[in-house]
Write a protein that binds this DNA or RNA. Structure first.
Lengths: 197, 197
DNA sequence: TCGAAATTCGAACAAGCGTTCGAACCCCCA
DNA sequence: TGGGGGTTCGAACGCTTGTTCGAATTTCGA
């Protein structure tokens, strides 16, 4: 069982990279065979088909982000601080798992039927977590605005895959701090408080 | 010549909608034929092929956004106000042209070769415009942070296509105001100013 | 060392794709 | 009324795709 699991893990990791580079629909099973070192038919021993490959990549990655975020947020009780921890976790996780997170962000609607529903359940929990943090931070804000603000924040964070270069000038921690500063400063503190939280 | 142009416009509009709904690679020329009311072969009288259809949708839309933004920004001289005008224009244009803007945002790397290069030229000018606004607003901010902040803002605004429902509770103007508040409050004003600028 | 189970893969298939071609059609001016 | 150019389309082609199948190979406990 052990070598089997390792081989599957290897396949999923390579698949995530190729999906990230070429896009899900443009990558062929032959591409994945070449990238993983397996034969075309050999992959079907580990996986039911192309879409299950995408589903596994997304489910595993999303489960890790959610668990990591819940754990990170538990590290503080002060609302603003909890929100900052959430942002820092998401951004640094994104930068550390660029391929998987790009596939998760960009191929969100490439799954169909039950597989899509399964990922959407995790997404719902993740969005709910952020919205609950925003409610702690800005309880007087209208619900619609809080909800839209949550998506705006996800936009800032998930758009990363479109431009971020790990070899570039800005490192993940600094980027996380910048995004946290923009959002917390603009949404959470811009009402009644003065600078400096 | 007039009926020809109208027919091409019609084809492009329908193509944008289908691309937005199913994704570029998942839509077939037969889908586009059905959606436009033309025959499969008939479309090739107006367009060289599938990729040219995508290119035309993106080029025309992006050209309009850029021109509109330049015009909007010219409506004020105060840096913060110019930035707010840029944001308001982008968000309301996005909401008013959801299909085209989704195709522009989500299918950015679905073009190849010269066609991709052509769109990237417009994109460069658009990004430069925002970065120049940020330089006006926060001249003391490090260049890397200003650049990353620009992409963060684009993330907030372009992510819209993933969640925004035109029939939902929040209207485009309010959304634009919220995003402007978050970004301006968190990036532009969070340094030395006090609330209410 | 034997043999069954686990694993790999070459080869082929059916379906769907973008594109092409030539004939038909329609409109409008001479 | 005739004819030519602008416009449409049915039919087909060649290719790529995801998937399957059965046999070959490897693995490993008895």
């Amino acid at each position: 069982m052990r070598p089997y699991d390792e081989r599957l893990e290897h396949l999923l990791a390579r698949a995530a990279k190729v999906f990230a580079e070429k896009g899900y629909h443009s990558t062929t099973m032959r591409d994945l065979a070449a990238a993983s070192g397996m034969s075309l038919a050999g992959m079907y021993y580990y996986v039911r088909g192309k879409e299950e490959l995408l589903a596994l990549v997304q489910e595993r990655c999303f489960t890790r982000v959610l668990a990591g975020a819940e754990q990170a947020v538990a590290g503080a009780t002060e609302p603003v601080e909890r929100l900052q921890l959430f942002i820092r976790h998401h951004v640094t996780f994104f930068a550390a798992n660029l391929a998987e997170m790009k596939v998760l962000s960009h191929e969100a609607s490439s799954l169909t039927g039950e597989r899509q529903r399964k990922v959407n359940v995790i997404k719902r929990r993740y969005v709910d977590l952020l919205e609950s943090l925003l409610k702690e931070v800005a309880p007087d804000e209208p619900r619609v605005d809080r909800s839209a603000a949550a998506y705006a924040l996800f936009g800032m964070m998930n758009w990363i895959y479109n431009w971020y270069d790990p070899a570039g000038e800005i490192d993940p921690d600094r980027l996380a701090g910048l995004i946290a500063r923009i959002f917390v400063g603009g949404f959470a503190e811009a009402r009644s408080t003065v600078q400096g939280g």
